[in-house]
Design a protein around this nucleic acid. Structure first.
Length: 221
DNA sequence: TCGAAGATTGTCT
DNA sequence: GACAATCTTCGAG
């Protein structure tokens, strides 16, 4: 059932559990971002199931966070950020790439976790087709736009439930604090030095970290 | 109605 | 490393 023949070594001995409940998301955004590492994103779509372990996230923590879309307040675009914890916030960036966020905090309190990179588990062939790739390399899913393309996520998933929809997040591997690295977020200008990006140490599927970025282990915070 | 900005990526040098 | 692609959103006038 689980197609991990071409996956990375870690994925070949990996099994995942139940869907994360809404209560998982209705907490502090930074904590959710850290704890999403090791969980499994699954999409059952018409061309097949694809799944992957989340290995990189960023927290966008509310209206006081200049880099968070909610800094603009409640608008048509940002409404999902104020919605139910455990729902998806999907938006188009630069007119080209979709980005998937998991909405956090109780209803009415904006916050979200951007999913930046996955380690593929199931549906490798489906993901390769979607990305127009010939073989499995980290380039398949090591960025938020690439992740969405490989997982067939676009505006149709905006505001849908990650608890009961076709796109879901399951419990997976729990990484020790010592295995988690924290750096500033990538590609933003406002609040650019806030340490709210989390990724799995020494994992090949994580996107690149700029050389000048300070990096600390989560266990050292 | 118009203009500018943007949580990125792929290609070219 | 630089740069173009592409389009939605929102604020200003």
């Amino acid at each position: 059932m689980t197609d991990t023949r071409n996956a990375a070594p870690f994925a070949r001995r990996f099994a995942f559990g139940r869907v994360l409940p809404a209560s998982f998301y209705a907490r502090d955004t930074a904590l959710v971002a850290r704890e999403l590492l090791g969980t499994v994103l699954v999409n059952d779509s018409s061309d097949g199931r694809a799944s992957g372990m989340i290995v990189e996230t960023e927290a966008y923590v509310g209206e006081h966070d200049g880099a968070c879309h909610a800094a603009a307040g409640l608008t048509n675009r940002t409404a999902p950020l104020y919605g139910a914890p455990g729902s998806a916030y999907v938006y188009l960036i630069y007119g080209l790439h979709w980005c998937l966020n998991a909405v956090t905090q109780p209803v009415g309190v904006p916050g979200a976790v951007l999913l930046r990179a996955l380690e593929p588990l199931e549906g490798i062939d489906v993901m390769l087709n979607r990305r127009g790739a010939a073989r499995l390399t980290p380039n398949l899913t090591n960025g938020p736009g690439k992740l969405c393309a490989a997982m067939a996520i676009d505006r149709n998933q905006n505001s849908t439930s990650l608890v009961s929809g076709s796109v879901r997040i399951h419990r997976g591997h729990v990484f020790d604090d010592d295995q988690v690295v924290v750096t500033p977020r990538i590609g933003i200008r406002k609040a650019a030095d806030w340490p709210l990006r989390y990724f799995v140490r020494d994992n090949a599927w994580v996107s690149r970290t700029p050389a000048a970025f300070p990096a600390r282990r989560y266990s050292e915070l």
